[in-house]
């Protein structure tokens, strides 16, 4: 149907963007396809090695599963912060990604968690890492006749954990001024970084995967100085704008504070300690 109707068709997952846009006349699709009726797009598959989340699965169905909280905490940090409860009951992580807002609260966590997107076209299925999915503010790399089927997150390594934080002026129900997610894997003694991934949102047209910041930690000892040095790399990559939610300099400063804090939170969750804090 997507191929037949092309840009006239819209896929409905949670509807928290589409229905609002239809109502105010910004979007006038001739066909609406409810993807929640497609089994593959509406399933959660949790195995020992990975988590597969169908593109239409709501935030709430994710946080209702305690095992996901335990194994993929950054994802839970995100889906419990997106809107209030009625929005979480409907809004999907897949929709958050496809909507490709620079501030999308699920996207940094997906990047940190090494998620990949499974995409279906008229003839084949392809897969891209989530960090390559968004192409601009509100734009993604899906072709007109393609749609997102699912997101696959590999089981994090031993002695690792993940975390997501965002800054908003209010406690709840707001759009991130800056958000950031971290994934750290520590050595058995939890004193050295084996690997790390860092992603920052709302500081560029797309959520940023700051690969260099994570790489800078490999083999380094788990201490504040190294965490701060990694955060400085994220700050150097951030290229935010001034807008109603925050200024360039505020966002630069927030990038530093949030990346430090989210790294520390991930380290703590992985069982690591930082003595000099």
């Amino acid at each position: 149907m997507v191929a037949d109707y092309g840009c006239q068709a819209r896929l409905l997952a949670g509807g928290t963007d589409l229905i609002v846009n239809m109502r105010c006349g910004r979007d006038r699709p001739s066909v609406v396809v409810d993807t929640k009726r497609v089994a593959e797009l509406n399933q959660i598959k949790l195995s020992r090695t990975r988590l597969v989340v169908g593109a239409s699965v709501s935030c709430r169905r994710i946080w209702e599963q305690p095992e996901i909280t335990q194994r993929f905490p950054a994802l839970i940090d995100s889906v419990t912060l997106i809107g209030g409860i009625p929005i979480q009951s409907r809004a999907s992580v897949g929709g958050n990604l496809c909507n490709a807002a620079p501030s999308g609260d699920a996207i940094p966590s997906l990047i940190a968690l090494r998620a990949t997107a499974q995409i279906c076209g008229p003839n084949d299925l392809r897969e891209v890492p989530v960090e390559d999915f968004c192409s601009g503010a509100g734009e993604n790399t899906l072709a007109k006749d393609e749609f997102l089927v699912s997101l696959t997150i590999p089981q994090p390594a031993q002695n690792s954990s993940t975390s997501f934080l965002r800054f908003t002026p209010r406690n709840e129900m707001d759009i991130a001024v800056v958000n950031a997610a971290a994934n750290v894997t520590l050595s058995e003694t939890k004193t050295t970084f084996l690997s790390a991934r860092l992603a920052v949102g709302s500081v560029a047209p797309v959520p940023l995967f700051v690969e260099e910041a994570g790489k800078s930690l490999i083999g380094k000892s788990v201490c504040t100085a190294n965490v701060v040095a990694a955060a400085e790399i994220a700050v150097a990559h951030a290229r935010p704008i001034d807008d109603m939610r925050g200024t360039f300099s505020q966002r630069k400063q927030l990038t530093k504070v949030l990346t430090i804090r989210t790294l520390l939170k991930a380290i703590k969750r992985a069982g690591g300690t930082i003595d000099d804090v």
């Binding site: 949670g14 509807g15 229905i19 409860i85 009625p86 929005i87 009951s89």
Partner: peptide, 15 residues
């Protein structure tokens, strides 16, 4: 809707 709290304005009636 099916036990989960939603905004009726963000649900299409056909759903």
């Amino acid at each position: 809707m099916d036990g989960r709290l939603v905004c009726a304005c963000l649900v299409l009636a056909v759903e």
